[in-house]
Design a binder for these strands. Sequence first.
DNA 1: CTTGCCCTTGACGTCAACGTCAACTCCTAC
DNA 2: GTAGGAGTTGACGTTGACGTCAAGGGCAAG
Lengths: 140, 140
Amino acid sequence: MRIGDIARQAGVSTRALRYYEEQGLLTSQRSPSGQRIYPESAVERVRLIQQLFTAGLPSRTIVQLMPYIDTGHGPPEVFELMAAERDRISAAMADLAAARDALDRMIEIAHHPTPEHCPALREPPWTPHHDAEAATAAVV
Amino acid sequence: MRIGDIARQAGVSTRALRYYEEQGLLTSQRSPSGQRIYPESAVERVRLIQQLFTAGLPSRTIVQLMPYIDTGHGPPEVFELMAAERDRISAAMADLAAARDALDRMIEIAHHPTPEHCPALREPPWTPHHDAEAATAAVV
DNA sequence: CTTGCCCTTGACGTCAACGTCAACTCCTAC
DNA sequence: GTAGGAGTTGACGTTGACGTCAAGGGCAAG
């Protein structure tokens, strides 16, 4: 298969595939005229790479994981790297959950336009020490 | 409070705070000599901004949310923007979960060095059509 | 008064995963 | 043989949230 076929089936650009090769994430045979030839399995591999990118792993880290991806074993430091990345992803998920909850609270507040409802997001707008009622009037 | 105090309490750099102001995310009073003066509530505000950044919202989007953050209401389009961002965050969490599961599978496989265990990640390493056993020997 | 730490604006640097020409070559179809 | 759609390398552009000088002003302590 040529680069365009892989790109279509994996849903990425050909530029991305050449970039992956440049980074050592993807290898390819070459046809006599210099064109890249890939096996079928390259599609699945590219999807995995994409998934890891989406999860926030930089290409350098993915390169380090390659021995495990290819052969199923490698140096033990890389093994711990996998565990560390998994934990980092879990932490990122917790951050996302917290942010989503914050948005949900904002949506909840916006749904109930009761002026008594949890100020929580700002005190009186940093009254400039003199005309406090003017600032209050400006808000209203 | 001055910029350094806010930076310390919120755990960000002073550069970040000036950037936030430049982007319209944070306002400040000025002392007679031109120094930025913040209310106590700025710390909480900066933490919220950080949380939204961590969740992948760009500054332009956060700016649009500001009317809701400040006053609790705003144009309805912004209302839908909040819902859209919440959904995007949920989708990102699903992506992270999938990637974490993929890593867990890799860790599982690495724990059981049985050569029979789900190749699943690559076929025979694209045997270059001639010296197949040489390549196999190279892997070993 | 001067030492030293904090503040100011302005402007350039960074990093990562590509996008986007440019200038060629290759291969398939007619 | 020739048009046109792929492929090739090389190199510069992009985007966002800051980092990092550079050059100066402000302010309390000794």
